Structures are given as C-alpha cells and as structure tokens.
Amino acid sequence: MKLGIFGGGQLGRMLAQAALPLDVECQVLDPTEAPCAAAAARHIHGDYADQHALDALTDGVDAVTYEFENVPVDAVKYVAARLPASPGATSLACAQDRAHEKQLFEDLGIDLAPWAEVDDFAGLREAVARIGLPAVLKTRRFGYDGKGQVVIRGADELEAAWQTVGAQPCVLETFVPFEREVSMIAVRSLSGETRCYALTENVHRDGILRQSAPLDGDALQADAEAALAKVMKALDHVGVMAFEFFVAEGRLLANEIAPRVHNSGHWTIDGAVCSQFENHVRAVLGLPLGDTATRGPCVMLNAIGEMPTTAELAAVAGCRIHAYGKAPRPGRKIGHVTLIADSSSALSDRLPALQAMMGV
C-alpha cells in the first residue's frame, strides 16, 4: 500500500517511519527543499496550491492524509475528489477557525470558557465588556505553539493587544486559572470505531509544549473520551485527533482540537502498544485499529532549540531518543525523548536528571 502526506515535517517523518513495518510506502508533498520527512519518505517538492504537485502526490497512492492543519482546505477537497483523503475537509476547516471550533463545542454540549468573536477593535471592547478581564485574545486562524495570542489583564492593554495579534479577526476567551493542562489522543476508523489513549498531562513554557506524561486511571478519562467521541462523530473524522483541555475546579474545559497526530501523543511511540502514528496510518488506509493501552510508566520531553548529544542521552537508562534531523534554532522543536521505566518510583528517580539535561 502507499500513502500520500501533506507536509514533510517531523510529524510526516514519524508517520512514514510508523508506516514502514506495515509495508506501507509514503510520499510527502512539502514546499521546502529538504524536509526532515525525506529521510523516511519520497519527497515531492511543490506548493500545496499547485495542481501539478497535488496530482503528483496522489499518483499511485491508496489514500492521502496531512501532518498539520494549515493545509489549504481546497487542496484536500481536490485530492478527495480522486481518492480517500482523511481526515476530511470538514475536520480541517473546523480546526482552522477557532470561532467555528468553539461553536462546535457549544453545539455538542462540551464545557468551555466563556468566549466571544471579535472582528474589529470596537468588537474587542464589546467582548471585554461582556466576558470581562483577564482574558486571552487569539487569532481565529494560524495560531500554534503560543503564537497568535496575547493575555489582556487591564483595559489599558486593549490597543496594544489588538496590534499584537495583527488587527485581524479573533476570539476572546476568559482567562482560565487552570490546575493543569491535559490532552487526549484518539483514533477513529473508516467504520466509526473509536479508540482512546490515556489522558495526558502536559507542561508548557512560553506557549510551547515541554513535557507530556500519560495518566492511566485518571478520574477525567471518561469525560475526555466522551468529548472526543462527540467531536469525531460530528465531523465524521477518520484518523487521529488530539483534544486539549484545561482542568479547572476538577472538571474539563475544552481548549482546542488538532485533526492530526499531535506532539502530546509522542509518548505513544515507546509507551503504548500501538503508537498514534501507526494507528493514524491504519485508520486512513482502512486497516484494523491497534491497541491503545499504555505499556507502563513513561514521560516525553521535547528538545526545543537544541538537543543533548546522542551519547549523553544514550547513557540514561530507559531513554528513547527521537531526533528529527532538523538544524538547531531557538524555539524550534528538533527532537524528543521518552523516558520509560518499570515502575512510577523508578521513573520519578530518573526524571529530574533528564529534565535538567533537556532544559525542561
């Protein structure tokens, strides 16, 4: 079998790596000269809006998917007219617009913080009057890793905040004094079967994910599973989806979805029976889904900007290394490691030294 992938970054790379043991070949469409996924897949150099490039991506493949949610919806619709493209354009369009996303949560009865659409500066003033401060102003489109958003704590900050986000359509949401940030990864098949991984606790700094660890048996597992099932069914989603939540006063508040494999699910490569990447490949190609059970205690740490040497990391017992083949650069995700152990106590003993090494 053969799979086409929009995007040749680290997620495309790990999808292609997971596909190989299934005897699935991958080819990626990416506009950069040497994307890191080219180490594991054939690279088609072209723009996502170029029809000739889209034709090349679909040539000889059984299905097409994407590694990130800023692929043009029209490009997905174009290839979907020729062969299966999953997740579909409906999921993609929803995830690209924070207002549509939040409205979906409300329509499905999923709890979230109070919010309002903001189309202009006058609308920002009206939204603040309605939901109060502090609040977070977020661009409706193209925000990730803390980009495209700003916290507003006082009325005197409105003008600066509006300029910071580029004076473009936004959503304003009440600032949530959360107890923790969690996410759940799930996968849905072509037939509608859904399987969920363990709820995962995440640690962010400067808007960038630094650490993720599965929480087997967490009291909020069932609530997160129910929310994901509602969203995936409503969108007729096929493949992996990530759902990020805030935990406030012991309950889940929806933050956002990602219609793809997700950084907070990287621990599944070494810590689950079947990884999110393999399960995504299985789902979009119509193969049976794999077991999402957690193998044992583990934690994933991102390498941001730089990464310790392979020799340094290899000396840490239970450390699984995943370098992405990307040049170091401040703020850039260039790899991750997953620490696994036989017990929670052993994991806790080893973790601080690895956190210090990784700068977490």
Rank of each mutant, 00 (worst) to 15 (best):
P259E: 01
G265K: 05
A258K: 13
V299T: 15
G305K: 02
V238R: 02
P288W: 03
A293K: 12
P297A: 15
E256D: 10
S264M: 06
G265A: 08
N302D: 07
V247K: 08
G318C: 13
P259T: 10
A314G: 12
V240C: 08
R282P: 14
F243Q: 04
A226I: 00
A248S: 14
H237I: 05
L252T: 03
Q276T: 13
I269W: 04
N302E: 07
V281Q: 00
A248M: 10
M241A: 12
D291R: 12
A227T: 02
G305V: 01
S275W: 07
T310A: 15
S275D: 10
P308R: 07
A254E: 09
V316H: 10
L301H: 01
V231T: 02
K230T: 01
V238C: 14
A314W: 01
L313V: 05
M307Y: 00
F277C: 14
G296W: 04
A226Y: 00
R320T: 08
M241Y: 01
A315P: 02
H280A: 09
M300E: 06
F277M: 11
A229N: 10
A242S: 15
A317S: 14
A258I: 11
A317H: 11
R282H: 10
D236P: 01
V231L: 10
V316S: 05
M307P: 00
T292Y: 06
H266E: 07
L252Y: 05
N255I: 11
D291W: 07
A283F: 05
M241C: 02
V240E: 05
E256P: 14
P308D: 03
I257A: 07
E256H: 14
C319F: 08
I269G: 06
P297L: 12
V299F: 07
V299G: 11
I257Y: 08
L228C: 15
P297C: 14
V316G: 02
G318M: 14
R295Q: 13
V316R: 15
V284W: 01
V240D: 02
L287R: 12
V247H: 05
H262A: 09
D270H: 06
